[in-house]
Simulated assay, not measured.
Amino acid sequence: MNKLSSFEADIRPLFTQRDIQAMSKAFNLASYDDVKTHAVEIFDRIRGIGGAVMPPPPPKGEGPWTQSRIDLFAKWVADGCPP
C-alpha cells in the first residue's frame, strides 16, 4: 500500500491552531495553496534548517515534530503536494 497523502486528510491536521496563528503573518498553514507554495521552506524549518526548529518547544509551541510526521510531510512534497 503506497497511497498518496492528501493535504486535507493528512497534512492539514499536522498544523495546530497555535501553529497557524504563529505563522499567520508569513502565510496561512491552513491553506493548501500557501502550504504548497512554501512547502520547501516549511520542510526545512520542521527539520531546524534555516532557523530555529518549528514548531518551537513549550511554552511557545507544541515542540518539534516526530520523525514520522516529518516523513509524512516529505512524502507529500515528493508526491507533488496532492490537495
Rank of each mutant, 00 (worst) to 15 (best):
P59C: 07
K36D: 03
L72H: 07
I42T: 10
K36T: 05
V35T: 09
H38L: 07
G51W: 10
I46W: 02
L72G: 02
R45V: 09
P57I: 14
F43L: 14
P56V: 13
R45M: 08
R69I: 03
P57R: 14
E41A: 14
F73L: 09
S68T: 15
R47W: 01
S68D: 12
D44S: 12
P55T: 06
I70C: 07
P64A: 11
G51R: 05
F73A: 02
V40M: 09
G48E: 02
G61L: 11
M54G: 00
G51Q: 07
E41W: 15
P64N: 05
I46Y: 05
G63C: 11
P55R: 02
G61I: 08
G51E: 02
A39C: 15
V53H: 00
H38W: 11
K75N: 09
D71Q: 11
I70E: 04
P58S: 10
I42P: 01
G48M: 09
A52R: 07
A74H: 10
P64T: 08
R47Y: 01
V40L: 06
P59H: 07
L72Q: 14
A39E: 05
P56N: 10
L72E: 13
T37W: 04
M54L: 15
P58V: 14
P57Y: 08
T37P: 00
